[in-house]
């Protein structure tokens, strides 16, 4: 199977109220899928169920053909390494440097004693440095995360996912906390990474114009129901002219 991420009939209720109803999607390698929907429509619930940060009531999730649903303990941890995540609030460790935050992507494969001593493997440190260079932050590697701007912090979060070398990148409203210029920068970066590395990206957004500009596939979320919409005549990221980074 060539699909990188597949969800089948995911459902979740919160205290009786359905938040997610039979959501299914299948992403192939290189897809830049956008889930568009107003806040409260269930996008974040879908994101949290796909990553199993929230346990779905029912449904199946496959990452690179391997099941994620039903896994527990060590198996779940191993499977999660294949999913890179970017959160709306960046979720960096504020008092750690950009480099240490990028290294967090290697946390899953690093033995606890190395974590305790802060001695990550040479290869992982190099991977984190390369990831920060790829997001344009090679000059800010030693800076504490809470001294970076919002856009920079979100780029560190993307570097974290790159260090993780995951099969898929799932981003929940990655630009909702950013100013318009930083938002474009982050989405352009995600597009570039997808183009350059064949990464598969799933990204929730609530602004139609951004979805139009960047999506190669479009899903719409309404009241917990997910449906794919034709990108059709929409100007997609692949066709879009390169966007200036110096906005």
């Amino acid at each position: 199977m060539s699909d990188v991420l597949r969800a089948q009939r995911l459902s979740k209720r919160f205290g009786g109220a359905p938040a997610l109803v039979n959501a299914s999607l299948t992403l192939d390698r290189g897809d830049f899928a956008v889930i568009l929907g107003p806040s409260g429509s269930g996008k974040t619930t879908l994101f949290r169920c796909l990553t199993r940060l929230t346990e779905p009531d029912s449904g199946e999730i496959y990452v690179a053909g391997e099941p994620l649903h039903g896994l527990r303990g060590a198996a779940l941890k191993r499977a999660r390494r294949r999913i890179g995540v970017v959160f709306q609030q960046f979720n960096l460790i504020k008092r750690r440097t950009a480099l240490e935050n990028a290294l967090m992507g290697a946390l899953g494969r690093t033995p606890p004693w190395r974590v305790a001593l802060g001695r990550f493997s040479r290869a992982d440190v190099e991977a984190a440095e390369a990831a920060l260079a790829a997001v344009g932050l090679q000059d800010k590697m030693r800076q504490r995360a809470d001294t970076l701007s919002g856009g920079e912090q979100q780029r560190v979060a993307i570097a974290r996912a790159l260090t993780q070398k995951s099969a898929v990148l799932i981003a929940d409203e990655p630009v909702a906390s950013l100013d318009p210029a930083s938002a474009e920068q982050v989405l352009t970066l995600m597009t570039d990474l997808r183009n350059a590395r064949g990464m598969t990206v799933l990204c929730t957004l609530h602004q139609p114009h951004l979805a139009r500009a960047y999506a190669s596939r479009l899903f719409v979320m309404r009241q917990g129901r997910l449906s794919e919409a034709p990108v059709g005549s929409m100007e997609t990221a692949a066709e879009a002219p390169a966007r200036s980074l110096s906005l």
Binding site: L53, I83, N91
Partner: peptide, 25 residues
């Protein structure tokens, strides 16, 4: 909770999440 979730999504278990993401905070 955010940084702890981010650490957990890298595939880290409780000990590593606590050591790396919780303690500095």
């Amino acid at each position: 909770p955010g940084p702890l979730e981010a650490a957990a999504m890298s595939g880290a278990g409780r000990a590593k999440v606590v050591l790396f993401a919780l303690l500095p905070d």
